[in-house]
Amino acid sequence: MKTPRAAAFAGIVFAVVILVAFAILLQAIQPRAGDTGAWARDKASAVNFALQLIPVAGVAFLWFIGVLRDRLGPDEDKLFATVFLGSGVLFVGLLFVAAAATSAIVFAAQEPGFLAGATFRLARSLAFDLTSVYAMKMASVFMFTASSLIVRTGFTSRWTAALGYGLGLLVLLFSQSAPLTLFLFPLWVLTVSLTILWEQWRDAEPRAAAREPASPPLAPEA
């Protein structure tokens, strides 16, 4: 599979899988202020299923980063490339740690008295802050740098860069107070990936037409 198409498919896999995982988790887990932890027992199966999706999404996202860097090649700016790669890797790492902390809560919730103690509140706060504060801030930095690379190199439509700047600002400012901002980053990655696929398909049609052999000349009549 050629590089732009591989990046697009990896981005689509990441976006779809992480959107499903976030939707399940937000439906199951209450906001932090009123969280009693009942979800860790009553909705343990759904939460565990969502947590199992996160490593799949993380691997797809790392593939998305790698293929995009290969696509940029010598056009990649070292400053932007360093922040682009670093923020993406940090996002995945923080998301994995938050998922592990949430999984530990589900496991420990089977012990009597755990949900009423300080240990649950500590673990819950850790998982919440790792996701909504640190991981999502890194996601906003990734959106800013990726959008800047789009503007500088034009490897896809520049309107996706404008969208990335706007959504990245919303994530940066409101990820801790508005849980629905979790969906903005994967939706942007999905938009960029679909745009790359569309451009590949659109550009392939003229090339395919140019490669078609011309019709042979008609034989002269006897």
Rank of each mutant, 00 (worst) to 15 (best):
L197N: 01
Y134M: 13
V141R: 00
T191R: 01
A7G: 12
R152F: 13
K137N: 02
D77I: 03
L90D: 08
A44Q: 06
R121G: 08
A10R: 09
S125Y: 03
V141L: 14
T131Q: 05
W188Y: 05
L68C: 04
A127V: 05
A44V: 02
P55H: 14
F84R: 06
L79T: 06
A40I: 04
I24D: 12
Y134D: 15
Y165S: 08
V97K: 00
G58T: 04
L172N: 14
A109C: 12
W201V: 10
A40C: 03
S140D: 00
R5W: 12
F107K: 03
L126V: 15
S215V: 10
A6L: 11
V189F: 06
S87H: 05
T102M: 06
F91L: 10
I24T: 05
P220M: 13
S148A: 08
F9S: 12
L115D: 01
G73F: 09
L115H: 03
A33T: 09
A6W: 12
L51W: 06
W39Y: 05
V20M: 14
D129G: 09
F128R: 08
P112K: 03
A10M: 08
F64K: 14
A116P: 10
L194W: 06
A219M: 02
I150L: 10
G86L: 08
L182G: 02
M138E: 08
V192M: 10
R69K: 07
I65Y: 01
V133H: 06
G168P: 14
A6S: 03
T3C: 04
A60M: 14
W63T: 15
L182H: 00
T181P: 02
V171A: 03
R158C: 13
A28H: 13
T195L: 08
A214M: 04
I54N: 07
A178G: 04
A127T: 05
W159K: 07
E205W: 14
A222S: 07
G166I: 01
A46C: 02
A23S: 05
I12T: 12
K2R: 13
T3N: 05
T160H: 02
E212T: 14
Q30M: 06
T36M: 15
F174E: 11
G37P: 15
F22E: 04
G86D: 07
G93D: 04
A57D: 10
G11S: 11
V16D: 00
G11E: 09
P216Q: 09
T3W: 00
Q52M: 13
F107C: 11
V171K: 02
P217A: 13
L197P: 04
A81H: 12
Q200Y: 14
R158T: 09
F22V: 10
G93L: 01
L197H: 05
S125G: 13
D75E: 13
A8N: 09
T153A: 12
G164N: 04
L130N: 01
L173W: 13
E221S: 15
N48Q: 00
